[in-house]
Design a protein around this nucleic acid. Structure first.
Length: 161
DNA sequence: CCTCACTTTCCTGCTT
DNA sequence: AAAGCAGGAAAGTGAG
């Protein structure tokens, strides 16, 4: 199985400036029950208006906002903010836009959280990703949990923004 | 209210 | 055997 990967992917903390809720809040106690959705605290944080994140970006890219309405943008933004993705996603080949879903369940939970849908699963999320093959947002990669941005995807390259 | 694009849900079968 | 992958089909949603 050579997990390889994850040198220090133990979500140690990395939550230096969580844009959404904290990791513990997400996984610490919620296996699948999900009493999560508090009322306001967590919700408010998740509702920070896009671009309204008062320049609180951590170091690195000035893009710490996961408010994207579309799945592929959400994935892209997560990929672009390593501080927040806690090792969920990882670039396989940054130059070619190839990335791997390291923690499928976590990704599904995050997406579900974004859409306020606690029934989200990787099975379902991946179905949505598969539809992107038709529109050129993503390209198929013959490897488990590996995807590649297609010609119609934008904003994932370091230089081009 | 309707349409459209995107997403979710469910399913059957196949592959790793 | 469990987890992914493939897509078809159909229902749900939000924007316009």
């Amino acid at each position: 199985m050579l997990d390889s990967v994850t040198h220090s992917t133990f979500l140690s903390n990395t939550m230096v400036c969580d844009p959404l809720m904290s990791w513990t809040e997400l996984f610490g106690t919620t296996e699948d029950g999900y009493p999560t959705c508090d009322h306001q605290t967590a919700r408010d944080k998740a509702c920070v208006r896009a671009g309204g994140i008062n320049g609180q970006e951590c170091h690195s890219h000035g893009r710490t906002n996961l408010q994207s309405s579309h799945l592929w943008e959400f994935v892209r933004d997560l990929l672009l903010s390593p501080e927040e993705n806690g090792g969920i996603l990882e670039w396989e080949d940054r130059g070619q836009g190839i990335f791997r879903v390291v923690k499928s369940e976590a990704l599904a939970k995050m997406w579900g959280q974004r859409k306020k849908n606690d029934r989200m699963t990787y099975e379902k999320l991946s179905r949505a990703l598969r539809y992107y093959y038709k529109t050129g947002i993503l390209e198929r990669v013959d490897r488990r949990l590996v995807y590649k941005f297609g010609k119609n995807a934008h904003g994932w390259q370091e230089n081009k923004i």
